[in-house]
Simulated assay, not measured.
Amino acid sequence: MGWKKDRAEIKRLMAARPDPDGRHGDETPQAEAINAELDRKLREQPVWRRARVLYED
């Protein structure tokens, strides 16, 4: 998958999280699945891309 598709998928997953900032400790099966998929997608990216996704607007 190309970077643009990966980035769009990562942004979609980040928006789909029930607890986007992680402050409430949402541990429902849905939240766990979304976070696991998001983590997998981010680990596939080089470090500089991970930072770009997480810290850009």
Rank of each mutant, 00 (worst) to 15 (best):
W48P: 03
K41W: 06
M14R: 06
D26A: 09
L42Q: 11
A16I: 01
M1A: 07
A8V: 01
D19K: 13
V47R: 14
G2S: 13
Q30R: 15
E32C: 10
R49A: 08
E56M: 06
D6W: 03
T28E: 03
A36N: 13
L38D: 00
L13S: 10
K11F: 02
D6H: 12
M14I: 09
Y55V: 05
R23L: 08
A16V: 03
G25S: 11
N35H: 04
R43T: 08
D6T: 04
D26N: 12
L13C: 07
R7P: 00
I34W: 15
E56H: 07
K4E: 11
M14W: 00
T28Q: 10
K4A: 08
P20R: 12
R7H: 13
D57I: 09
D39Q: 11
I10Q: 12
E32W: 07
A33K: 07
G22L: 05
W3H: 11
Y55P: 09
R43Q: 03
E27I: 12
R43F: 06
R50N: 11
R17P: 01
G25D: 14
E32G: 00
A16C: 02
L38W: 00
W48C: 09
W48T: 06
P46D: 14
D21L: 08
T28R: 05
R7F: 09
R17H: 11
V47Q: 12
R17F: 01
A16P: 12
P29K: 13
D19P: 06
A31N: 08
R23K: 01
R40N: 02
P29E: 15
I34V: 10
H24T: 05
R49I: 04
P20Y: 07
L13R: 02
P20V: 15
K5C: 05
W3G: 03
A16W: 12
E9A: 14
E37M: 02
K11V: 01
P18Y: 13
G25L: 07
Q45E: 15
K11I: 11
A31H: 12
E37F: 00
V53G: 04
A51Y: 00
R52S: 02
D39L: 14
D6P: 06
A8D: 10
Y55R: 09
R7D: 02
K5Q: 05
E56S: 14
G25V: 01
D21T: 12
R49W: 05
